[in-house]
Design a protein around this nucleic acid. Structure first.
Length: 420
RNA sequence: GUGGACGUAGCUCAGCUGGUAGAGCUCCGGAUUGUGAUUCCGGCGGUCGCGGGUUCGAGCCCCGUCGUCCACCCCA
């Protein structure tokens, strides 16, 4: 084969593109009715937007970013996630100046990772961010929004919501110290990755899958013991709102997110229908981020949906996501009728019908075959007889209805009557 | 970055202990004059991922390489 797409970058063929689009449209519709507004962001940013925003010591920044040298010598990066760019844009345009914002964006993100099921180097996310609201009410609203969207897609029962709190920056620092103090004497019992994290990012040891490490963690101190009253109240507030909204959740005290900017609430919607990549949607609160990127202290919370994974889940649970089907296929028996066929199709399209006109000639038999294969509900036949008498032959391909030849101007009404 | 599995027609796959490739689907034509999806007949389509080695002979064995998948790591 001469050329191949590069590793981890996939082509979305029509069947898959259709599924993805359906998922995106449903989620967008929910965002819309919740009053969230779209923001469009560049795919490229200065590298330090991410290294500062996401955290120098995160894997994303350390080894997964696509960075390149711009022609003027500066370092730019393909965005590995959306939150940092979104904050940058908001700061740049003054959107956070004593204001609240509810925003969303959708599009591809890029991370240089080893591809596997549900994980690609270019993948689609829908990101949602809410700024200027410090309480657990927005945290609950964000989760409510997810819940509504997942129900609409028919995957609600295949997803489990896990939540946790990391407390304030101060709580987190205190807990980090306690955790390190506990683990340090057992350094040798930890797996290699966890040993490394002990110095760099100790909280992430908590969700290690390594058996020996997990066993050791059983007696480790819990974050809940290091929360101040305010943090505790925030988390309790969120839990009671979720209960009142009828949203099921489990508290997972081991849930920590990989990105540095999280504080207080963190959450993940997980499934076990997708192999090892179970997180379909994840996010949390990040009250410190705006400051880290040079803004005034501003509360923020948000999440990102992995659109590819969500679409895979929709497919896996066989939830039906309606997709646009072709209504009509226009069979053109002679080349000289092409214009006539295109005009007929145009009339139907004005009436909201999806119509494809046959191209490339061929016998009626092969054209009818195409019509059938296209999935269209009916075929419209234009031959010598029809064109000279200004008529058209309507043949139903799926329903058991008689074929009929009728005046062209009656076709739209006839189809409306058929209720197809 | 680490580990394991797998690369044969456009797709899904078969191919025995080594003897120079096969099926189904798709596509095209015919049985059918202006009527699809069913049936029957015929046809197109392969440097068996690539390179080297062993052998009289390699799709099959060995080495290398590239790619894909799955898992680890990490994450959406």
């Amino acid at each position: 084969m001469a050329f191949q797409s590069i590793r981890g970058m996939r082509d979305l063929l029509p069947a898959e593109a259709k599924r993805l689009r359906a998922v995106e449209e449903r989620v967008r519709a929910v965002l819309d009715v919740f009053g969230y507004e779209e923001i469009r962001l560049p795919l490229l940013e200065s590298t330090d937007v991410f290294s500062r925003g996401v955290g120098e010591s995160t894997d994303i920044v350390e080894k997964e970013m696509y960075t390149l040298e711009d022609r003027d010598g500066g370092s730019i990066a393909l965005r590995p996630e959306g939150t940092a760019s979104c904050v940058r844009a908001c700061l740049q345009h003054g959107l956070l100046y004593n204001q609240q914002q509810r925003l969303w964006y959708a599009g591809p993100m890029f991370r240089y990772e080893r591809p596997q099921k549900g994980r690609y180097r270019q993948f689609d996310q829908i990101g949602v961010e809410a700024f200027g609201m410090p309480g657990p009410d927005v945290d609950a609203e964000l989760l409510h929004l997810c819940h509504v969207a997942f129900e609409a897609l028919g995957v609600g029962s295949s997803l489990r919501l896990e939540i946790n709190t990391l407390g304030s920056a101060r709580d987190r620092a205190a807990y980090k110290a306690a955790l390190v103090a506990f683990l340090e004497p057992h350094r040798d019992a930890l797996d290699e990755d966890s040993r490394r994290r002990l110095d760099r990012n100790p909280l992430r040891i908590l969700d290690s899958k390594h058996p020996a490490t997990k066993a050791l963690l059983a007696d480790a101190p819990m974050i809940s013991a290091h929360l101040d009253n305010e943090s505790r109240a925030h988390f309790e507030g969120l839990k009671s709102l979720l209960s009142e909204l009828g949203i099921d959740f489990v508290v997972n005290p081991r849930l920590v997110r990989g990105l540095d900017y999280y504080t207080h609430t963190v959450f993940e919607w997980v499934t076990d229908a997708l192999g090892a990549q179970g997180a379909v949607c994840a996010g949390g609160r990040y009250d410190g981020l705006i400051e880290m990127l040079g803004g005034k202290p501003t509360p923020g919370a948000g999440f990102a949906i992995g659109v590819d994974r969500l679409a895979m889940l929709v497919d896996a649970v066989d939830a039906t996501v309606a997709n646009a089907k072709l209504d009509g296929y226009c069979v053109v028996l002679e080349e000289r009728f092409t214009a006539s066929a295109m005009q007929l199709a145009a009339e139907l399209r004005r009436a909201g019908r999806r119509v494809r006109v046959h191209m490339g000639g061929g016998k009626i038999k092969s054209q009818m075959k195409r019509a059938d294969a296209s999935g269209a509900q009916f075929a419209l036949i234009l031959g010598e007889d029809e064109v000279t008498s200004k008529q058209v032959t309507l043949k139903w391909l799926r329903a058991d209805l008689p074929q009929e030849t009728l005046p062209r101007e009656q076709l739209v009404a006839r189809l409306a009557r058929a209720g197809s």
